[in-house]
Amino acid sequence: MKSKILLVLLFLLSLLAIPLPAMAQAPTADFYADTTYGTAPLTVHFYSTGVTGSPTSYFWKFEHETSSDWNSHHFGSAVHTFRYPGVYDVSLTVTNADGSTTNTKQSYITVKE
């Protein structure tokens, strides 16, 4: 009887040692620019950094949607030219099968005349 109880306990303990699959989660997003201030037209290179979760798509937003050149679907990095003076928010949205995450940097780019 004791041996059966011991076998059951060993079996239950072995179940605890089975690694559980990782919980799926949306990716994280972060980025930086090579410059954040300058005169128009200002060409800025953007680089994603600290991105986790194996994103399947990247969506950059540089200007308001009324601009003719306001976004980009480039993976990992992007280049954008700000043609007009102003202060711009920039955001990066990364997506995978488990969801998406957006990181917006308010007043990130300042363009002077």
Rank of each mutant, 00 (worst) to 15 (best):
Lys2Tyr: 04
Lys2His: 06
Ser3Arg: 08
Leu7Ile: 02
Val8Gln: 09
Val8Thr: 11
Val8Met: 13
Leu12Cys: 09
Leu15Trp: 06
Leu15Lys: 04
Leu16Arg: 05
Ile18Leu: 15
Ile18His: 12
Pro21Arg: 04
Pro21Gly: 12
Ala22Asp: 14
Ala22Cys: 07
Met23Leu: 13
Ala26Lys: 15
Pro27Asp: 05
Pro27Ile: 06
Thr28Ser: 15
Ala29Lys: 00
Ala29Gln: 00
Asp30Asn: 08
Asp30Leu: 01
Phe31Glu: 01
Phe31Tyr: 05
Phe31Ser: 02
Ala33Glu: 07
Asp34Arg: 00
Asp34Thr: 03
Thr35Ala: 14
Thr36Phe: 09
Gly38Val: 13
Gly38Asn: 13
Thr39Asn: 15
Ala40Trp: 06
Ala40Gly: 10
Pro41Ser: 12
Leu42Thr: 01
Thr43Pro: 08
His45Asp: 07
Ser48Ala: 15
Ser48Glu: 10
Gly50His: 05
Gly50Trp: 02
Val51Leu: 04
Val51Gly: 03
Thr52Leu: 11
Phe59His: 07
Trp60Asp: 04
Lys61Gln: 12
His64Trp: 10
His64Cys: 09
Glu65His: 13
Glu65Asn: 12
Ser67Phe: 01
Asn71Pro: 06
His73Met: 09
His74Thr: 13
His74Asp: 15
His74Ala: 15
Phe75His: 11
Ser77Tyr: 11
Val79Gly: 07
Val79Tyr: 02
His80Trp: 00
His80Glu: 00
Phe82Arg: 00
Arg83Phe: 05
Tyr84Ile: 05
Ser91Arg: 00
Thr93Pro: 00
Thr95Met: 06
Asn96Pro: 11
Ala97Thr: 14
Ser100Ala: 12
Ser100Lys: 07
Thr101Ile: 04
Lys105Trp: 03
Ser107Gln: 15
Ser107Ala: 14
Thr110Pro: 03
Lys112Ala: 08
Lys112Asn: 10
Glu113Trp: 01
